[in-house]
């Protein structure tokens, strides 16, 4: 399953495809794509019988995104110092990013969890919606928009789902203070 997936993903020009240690991470494959490829990734996984378990965001304000490295064996998982240093090669001032994470899973007995992530410019967090393809993404995207202010272009209704109707704040942004 994994190798098949990897070769399928190769056609999407992903930014990274990393096999991870399921025992530690809880998922098998970590794929990073650009915002223009999110729908393609969803379409590919949907075609292969995956279902979308959740969509969420992570706000990396003033921080380098903590991610997986292509070769997990060489990384000392137990050492936070090392993990922090591995963010981006040159540790300049980090470019503020907003990350959207899609969790895919299967129900047919094949154990394979795929994480698709997409990093966006924090100043203008926009990416296309997958809710046309996967109706279940509708609410997850609305929730992510509520909490992070990430705009899913093409979504039919991004009005607040969990927050009050008139909410104009995004509580899970790191610069939000209650």
């Amino acid at each position: 399953m994994l190798s098949e997936l990897k070769s399928e993903f190769a056609s999407l020009a992903p930014l990274a495809v990393i096999e991870t240690d399921y025992k530690v991470k809880g998922y098998h494959l970590d794929v990073e794509v650009g915002p223009d490829r999110v729908v393609d990734a969803a379409e590919l996984l949907d075609r292969l019988g995956f279902f979308l378990e959740a969509i969420t965001g992570v706000d990396w304000l003033g921080k380098n995104p903590v991610g997986n490295q292509p070769d997990p064996v060489s990384v000392n998982e137990q050492d936070p110092e090392a993990a922090e240093a591995e963010g981006e090669a040159g540790s300049d001032a980090p470019a503020d990013k907003m990350e959207v994470v899609y969790d895919y899973n299967r129900t047919d007995g094949v154990l394979c969890r795929v994480v698709v992530r997409c990093r966006l410019d924090r100043a203008k967090p926009e990416l296309p919606t997958v809710s046309r393809l996967i109706p279940g993404a509708d609410w997850h995207e609305r929730e992510t928009h509520d909490f992070f202010g990430i705009i899913f272009t093409g979504h039919h209704d991004l009005s607040p789902l969990l927050l009050p109707e008139d909410a104009d704040f995004h509580p899970l942004r790191k610069d939000f203070k209650a």
Binding site: K25, Y27, E53, A54, V66, G67, P80, D103, N105, R113
Partner: peptide, 19 residues
Amino acid sequence: AAGDYYGAVEAARGTFGIR
């Protein structure tokens, strides 16, 4: 250690996932 982790259990109503 820095990084993201996902875990799921079967709750009474379905898959409870926590990232």
